[in-house]
Design a binder for these strands. Structure first.
Length: 613
RNA sequence: GCCACCGUAGCUCAGCGGUAGAGCAGCUGUUUCGUAAACAGCUGGUCGGGAGUUCGAUUCUCCCCGGUGGCUCCA
């Protein structure tokens, strides 16, 4: 026998994400900064200064921007007479090594702003920073050949910088403003040991291996054709299978949660977006107007106005509310070319969208119900790494946010209370709200460690006003409802991108596009394999027969590379016994299992979805 | 959109001022095999597109398209 215990073989999905997912601001608010973290951060900051010295030694006329630390190292921004090349990076790194070898001391000095302006007379970016610092005194750090305006702290000397590696050159607008000059940013990794630097580089490499764009091509999930257009992905049959399963699942979950699903067109007259206010604010990110017979149409950039008009198609009593209108709504946005990325940032996308029309006093409960729906969906998907961001307005930014401060105070407080009542931790993020109201965003990390929003719940009292929405209250008078915009699975594009990365391409059985490959050992087993395949298909399993004239080993290898959860191998013994031998991606196997037993095991695994078990 | 880099067969890559190569994939044939690659043969490229320099450009220059990293944006 094969020595297995007889326990059912349940396929396991890909491992956890490489980068720990957590609220980035939490570490800072906790205040419990341990010494090691302090040292590392200080060292990285000093490394940035050393890099600036190295760059200025090569470009004496160069201007420096800012050079903060980041979670794997540091960067520094420069305004230089010519573009940097990869060879420059090598030269800069060599120069940095020399500065470290000098072991030159860092010195600190408190000076008046006027004195600082004299010191940095040749550094316009520093002068600008001096102007915005509120204090009278500013701090200046010096090391061998470099002086910087800097809060510090720094190491005692350059020799204490342990291990670093310059990574990439990138463009970055001065002070993050696209109307201001673009500086050249150099990113570097820095750790206490060179082994840790190496480990970080390996981590990056592993992250590239789970990048959904790479896996999406290898596993035949989606493609982007230049002839169709950037950001307009084509779903291949296997990717489409995953999407279709998700669509059916989430629609059923929503129908069971009191949503009503609708269908609406992907285009509308441009007047609709004048009325909503979106044209004015976002027309540059919309596909241009299509005109015919004096009518102007646009591809819709969001679904809310259509749903609002569904609400407006009749009178509503307070007794009917909340009304939850849901749709797998396809929308189109002209994202800037540089922002496009695989499936996660596209120009045509289908959102698991819904708009809840409710009374003000229902907002909190509806909000909580949506949070619970999200939690249920995540549980079934097996997600464990995500965090809640309470995206609030920035009172200091009157342009970006609707100027109704009272509304903001009230709705933001409602969301805080709701989250507290749910007992869920969250991070408040001022300046991340939508124009019209606060929102809860559920954040995950991509394979490459970047934050992305999956689910979102937004409170909106603005569109109801613009569209003059009303319901008849108990008092017989017209009242204005609130709209809650919400997306649970995000767009199917982004969700599938995330699933690919989260599962490393090893999908749980219920989502696997091909759940089992049947592998006849020799041609004479083909007939039996076909017979078993039809049985399995009749029971709803997605299976393929590998009928190629290849050796079994080769078929197993291909199934492994395609990350097919079950390999069902059948030769003389199996055909004689009405059985099959089950192999998992892990290499675990059960030989000679009855077909019926396999079916029971597989259907059980499908029913668990992504939940651990 | 902006800055930088990259673009050679379906994929991964080599080559390079003298006219293009490998492995895998594909196709054909042989093989019928017990848990990650059988063997042989063949096919496959206006070297991303256009213009320029040159006797000659895949190679050098410019423009465009696409991709990657970052910045900006994300209703």
């Amino acid at each position: 026998m094969d020595g297995t215990t007889g326990a059912p073989l349940v396929p396991r999905t890909g491992g956890a994400l490489l980068f720990s997912t957590g609220a980035p601001h939490m570490a800072e608010t906790l205040l419990e900064q341990d010494h090691a973290h302090d040292f590392l951060d200080t060292m990285r900051h000093s490394a940035a200064h050393i890099m600036a010295e190295a760059v200025l030694s090569i470009f004496p006329e160069g201007k420096v921007g800012i050079g903060p630390t980041i979670d794997y190292g540091f960067y520094y921004d420069f305004d230089l007479p010519r573009p940097l090349t990869p060879e420059d990076l090598v030269a800069i790194e060599t120069k940095m090594q020399a500065i470290v070898a000098q072991d030159a001391p860092f010195s600190r000095e408190e000076v008046s702003k006027d004195e600082a302006r004299r010191i940095f007379a040749q550094q316009p970016y520093k002068l600008e920073i001096i102007d915005v610092i509120p204090d009278e005194q500013v701090r200046v750090y010096r090391q061998s050949g470099f002086t910087d305006l800097c809060r510090g702290p720094h190491l005692e000397s350059t020799g204490q910088v342990k291990a670093f590696k310059l990574l990439t050159i990138a463009g970055a607008y001065w002070r993050g403003d696209e109307k201001r000059p673009m500086l050249q940013r150099i990113y570097g990794a820095a750790y206490e040991t060179s082994e840790e630097v190496e480990r970080y580089l390996e981590l990056l490499e592993e992250a590239r291996q789970r990048d959904h764009r790479k896996l999406g091509a290898e596993l035949g999930l989606f493609t982007v054709a230049e002839e169709v257009g950037s950001g307009l992905p084509l779903w291949l049959p296997k990717g489409a299978t995953i999407r279709r399963i998700l669509e059916r699942w989430i629609v059923d979950l929503e129908l069971a949660s009191g949503y009503q699903h609708v269908y609406t067109p992907h285009i509308a007259k441009v007047e609709l977006y004048h009325r909503s206010g979106h044209w004015e604010k976002f027309h540059e990110a919309m596909f241009p107007v299509m005109e015919r017979d004096n009518e102007q149409f646009v591809l819709r950039p969001m679904n809310c106005p259509h749903h609002i008009l569904i609400y407006k198609s009749g009178m509503h009593s307070y007794r009917e509310l909340p009304i939850r209108i849901a749709e797998l709504g396809t929308q189109y946005r002209y994202e800037k070319s540089g922002e496009l990325s695989g499936l996660s940032r596209v120009r045509a996308m289908t959102l698991n969208d819904a708009h809840i029309f409710c009374r003000a006093e229902q907002v909190k409960d509806e909000f909580k119900a949506v949070v619970n729906l999200i939690l249920e969906a995540y549980k079934q998907l097996g997600f464990t790494s995500y965090w809640h961001r309470l995206s609030l307005h920035d009172p200091n930014d009157p342009v970006k946010y609707h100027p109704d401060e009272e509304m903001w105070q009230f709705t933001e407080q409602v969301l805080r209370e709701a989250m507290d009542e749910l007992g869920l931790p969250y991070v408040e993020a001022p300046g991340e709200a939508a124009f019209y109201g606060p929102k809860l965003d559920v954040q995950v990390q991509t394979a490459l460690g970047k934050d992305e929003t999956i689910s979102t719940i937004q409170i909106d009292n603005h569109l109801p006003h613009r569209f003059d929405l009303e319901y008849i209250g108990e008092d017989g008078k017209a009242h204005r409802p609130t709209i809650i915009h919400r997306g649970v699975l995000s767009t199917f594009e982004r969700m599938v991108a995330y699933l690919i990365e989260n599962y490393k391409g090893v999908f749980p059985l219920w989502l696997a596009p091909v759940q089992a490959v049947l592998i006849p050992i020799a041609d004479r087993h083909l007939e039996y394999a076909q017979k078993v395949a039809s049985q399995l298909r009749a029971l709803g399993l997605r299976v393929q027969v590998d009928d190629r004239s290849e050796r079994m080993n080769s078929k197993i290898r291909d199934a492994q590379l395609q990350k097919v959860p079950y390999m069902l191998i059948m030769g003389d013994r199996e055909a004689a016994d009405g059985a099959l031998s089950v192999r998992l991606l892990s290499g675990e196997e059960i030989r000679g299992q009855k077909v019926g037993d396999f079916v029971a095991m597989a259907l059980e695994a499908v029913s668990k979805r992504g939940e651990a078990g």
